[in-house]
Write a protein that binds this DNA or RNA. Structure first.
Length: 258
DNA sequence: ATGTCCTCTCTTAGAGGA
């Protein structure tokens, strides 16, 4: 089973790229982030025609997350992270599909830091950590996938020294990610490629993709059940080079059948 | 500071976010 995560940066503006990628790589499950579309403007028909059933949590202009499944129906479990009823951002959706519990997330960017946006990021991170501990404790196969807006280590940034004050790389952010992973999660890419330079995002600015000035901020965290089934993982880097593409590339894992 | 791309609006230019 192949599972992918892709920050599309506008699901409607990105539709030709998304459909081409789905058609070429046919993942079984897909987590999307940054739909940037209200609930009623999600391109359900086009995605259905591509062979996917979808659930999504939209929002006007910003954020937005979705879970797509091929030959299956994602059964929605929740569409918000618990812990703050005032939080109106569409950044989390969770579903059960093919015997796996999937949390699809778009963690806040947090810039500029310090400031209220950074505070919100760290608060969101805390809520995610509380919730993920509960998911982990259930003991069923669980994965968290999405745009975490964190480079976990210096290996995950093209020029670490330039990013130390950025919300994606500040010590507090890295510590929060480390604390989350320490619950027992496995960072899928790093399990298979512990020392390789692997990026999932290249800024639109300054010709970043051509220079490979990238970041690794899109992650898969696997519970032990799924970590044991992990047989491959990668980044569809070429998609970042397509016309009218997202600033992120899709990331995927392959799990052995039970 | 800048660069670029997305979306929305006090809409065809500018603002806000990333």
């Amino acid at each position: 089973m192949k599972i992918a995560t892709y920050n599309v940066n506008g699901v409607n503006g990105r539709l030709p790229v998304l459909l081409r990628w789905l058609n070429e790589t046919t993942p079984d499950l897909v987590c999307l982030q940054e739909l940037k579309a209200p609930q009623e403007k999600f391109p359900e028909k086009a995605i259905q025609d591509a062979g996917y059933n979808a659930i999504w949590h939209g929002q006007k202009s910003w954020n937005g997350v979705a879970i797509l499944a091929r030959n299956a129906q994602p059964e929605e479990v929740r569409r918000a992270l618990p812990g703050d009823p005032e939080d109106m951002h569409s950044r989390y959706i969770e579903a059960s599909v093919n015997g796996i519990l999937i949390g699809c997330l778009y963690l806040p960017n947090g810039n500029p830091a310090p400031g209220p946006k950074f505070d919100y990021k760290l608060e969101w991170f805390k809520r995610l950590t509380v919730h993920s501990a509960k998911l982990f404790a259930v003991g069923t196969p669980v994965l968290l996938a999405g745009d975490f807006n964190v480079m976990p280590t210096e290996l995950d940034v093209y020029k670490p020294e330039r990013w130390v004050d950025d919300a994606l790389f500040r010590p507090e952010t890295r510590a929060a990610f480390k604390k989350l992973v320490a619950q027992g999660w496995t960072d899928a890419i790093r399990k298979l490629y512990p020392e390789e330079i692997i990026y999932t995002f290249w800024d639109y600015f300054r010709n970043a993709y051509a220079r490979n000035a990238g970041l690794r901020i899109d992650h898969f965290l696997l519970s032990p059940h799924l970590s044991n089934r992990l047989i491959a993982a990668g980044v569809d880097r070429n998609v970042r080079g397509w016309e009218k593409t997202s600033d992120h590339a899709p990331v995927w894992i392959e799990l052995a059948d039970k």
